[in-house]
Design a protein around this nucleic acid. Structure first.
Lengths: 336, 336
DNA sequence: ACTTGGCACTCCTTACACGTGAGTGCCAGC
DNA sequence: GCTGGCACTCACGTGTAAGGAGTGCCAAGT
């Protein structure tokens, strides 16, 4: 009974604190929410919640502020999924539909996500590991110089220039092209890699060089680690907590490796993961939360997408936006 | 005679202010620099410099701070080009030499530049307009679906997928490929565009669609407007002037169009352009300066590269770094 | 067994006063 | 034209005091 009200109090405190950015006191709370009890009652509840570690006071005789544990409870038990309005849905769909290629999909997603959530958006490029090779193209830039283009099922294109020891005529080029495609096209990256590695070891001179380059391109960790970041300007809203929230985050954004670790493993598509403050792997980022979800064609979680921001954020709204964007991006990847 | 000393005083003030971030007074000035005159003399000079608009006081009885005009004079007349040490030069060269493709060159340049200058680095991708078409490749993804790859002399690769009305067999594909290459390869973008436009208007069905897509890809303004940005974390150093310097800049960084306008036209390669505070086109960015230079193969200024940061910055060092990086990037583009 | 009003207490915030010191402008002398 | 001296200005830090928002606790009410 009173347990229920306590949770209502916690929810109210989180909501108020998120919007006002100030510690919230008992009196203001009963006024702004329709709690039919007196401030004194709320005070008792708040004291209890503080004992249990859900709230804390910046100093005696100040209002309460949620702790990480408080936010956690809020997110787990007090959040009602508020679906996006149809207008919003349509806006998302049309904005993403205009994309011309994979890079464009990613960069649009980042912009969209940062605008919807007013936070810093992070979108990981679809991982190579689960995608398949759609085609390998070899173009002679000069007799001894080839451009090798690797086209993947996700729409990503990698290109490399290969210098050959000896010139190659058109017939040999055609043969090379078909050998490579026979080995790789249609295969999952991992399988294509082993097939090409065999070519690189055993094949004749031109195959060797080209296959080796392809193997390198596919196993290149850079490709797995690419992320797009946007909306850093939204941090300006948090100018007050510059040192605790803005500065560390700004620094983390530069380090894409850090960022990827922060985003964590791609949770299964459809589930939104929330990591609050010190739950993350970096102590400097104790004041920032991460809201992510997986996305990919057929809801295969190929990669992760989400936002990072101060712990003091609108979790329900953010989670809804992240989920919605992931859903639409996945749909677009389905079509491609 | 005394005119000369006045300039020395201005230089000293700029240098001190940049490093200490505090208004600089007459006494501190004579101590820190080896001026062989008394503070009173310096005060007279400072008063004169203030009358002429080179200095200003935050308030009476505070030290002096350079105005935009003061920085301008400093940059134009008081800056001795300090060349990079050979160690630095070598570091730059090896760092950039590892790049595998154009994207990599650009992203490495951004990182390098932001680290050298400890400012926000901005690198514009080489413009399409002056580069030539190196090759057009057409790949059948499916009988009615083509991937068109456009390879430019700068190393940039654009790809588009084209859906055809009717399927295409291998012979037709080969013919299409050669037609397109005949029209475009080796031409400057502008000429290639007109040649392809002719094809798009007069050619047969498959040419039409593909040529139209190519024209679109080449004239696509997105490509002209791409920039890479890095080092936003360096703004954290300026946390104090958050509202005047950091916030507006953070917002501008998100708007790549704004950023490009801010960078201005690509000055001829070799000349470093400095735009100080209100000299720029945006009133919100009155507290930020821009240091840029052009770069490109054979010192053709294909694009612009540089840094943006608070007006209170180390101009000589920054200018040297910008120039050095531009030089090495140009050299790398020469080789490619 | 909760809830409530009352009350004393804490402590942040704001305002005001005051001393300190860095820095200035000006002037008379060198 | 440079220099030392001197009075003046103001930001800054500190100390004190009043005001107020908020708390904890207790005794009484339901």
């Amino acid at each position: 009974m009173q347990e229920e009200r306590r949770l209502a109090v916690l929810r109210a405190i989180v909501e108020d604190y998120v919007s006002t950015e100030e510690p919230v006191g008992s009196k203001a709370l009963v006024e702004r929410h329709g709690l039919n009890v007196s401030p004194a009652t709320v005070r008792n509840d708040m004291a209890a919640l503080e004992d249990e570690g859900y709230l804390t006071q910046p100093h005696t005789s100040a209002g309460r502020v949620p702790t990480d544990k408080g936010y956690r409870l809020f997110v787990d038990r007090l959040t009602t999924v508020k679906p996006m309005s149809t207008a919003e849905k349509r806006a998302i769909a049309t904005f993403l539909d205009g994309a011309v290629d994979l890079d464009d999909v990613v960069s649009r997603s980042v912009r969209l996500l940062s605008q919807l959530t007013r936070q810093v958006a992070v979108v990981q490029y679809p991982t190579l590991s689960r995608s398949t090779v759609r085609h390998v193209e070899v173009v002679a830039l000069a007799p001894e110089r080839l451009l090798v283009v690797l086209i993947l099922s996700t729409g990503r294109v990698e290109q490399r220039v290969v210098e050959l020891a000896a010139p190659l005529d058109d017939d040999e080029l055609a043969r090379l092209r078909s050998t490579l495609n026979q080995a790789a096209t249609g295969e999952v990256i991992a399988d294509a890699t082993t097939a090409l590695r065999a070519l690189a070891d055993d094949g004749r001179a031109p195959e060797r060089a080209v296959a080796a380059t392809l193997v390198e391109a596919m196993s290149d960790h850079r490709s797995d680690e690419r992320v797009a970041v946007g909306g850093a300007a939204n941090l300006a809203r948090y100018g007050d907590s510059f040192d605790t929230a803005v500065r560390p985050l700004l620094e983390a954004l530069e380090e894409h490796v850090v960022l990827l670790r922060l985003m964590g493993e791609a949770g299964s598509a459809g589930t939104v993961t929330v990591r609050i403050g010190a739950e993350g792997p970096y102590t400097e980022l104790a004041a920032t939360s991460v809201v992510t979800t997986g996305y990919g064609p057929h809801d295969d979680a190929l990669a992760t997408l989400g936002i990072v921001g101060p712990t003091r954020m609108d979790y329900p709204g953010t989670m809804a936006a992240v989920r919605a964007v992931a859903r639409y991006v996945s749909r677009i990847l389905d079509e491609a």
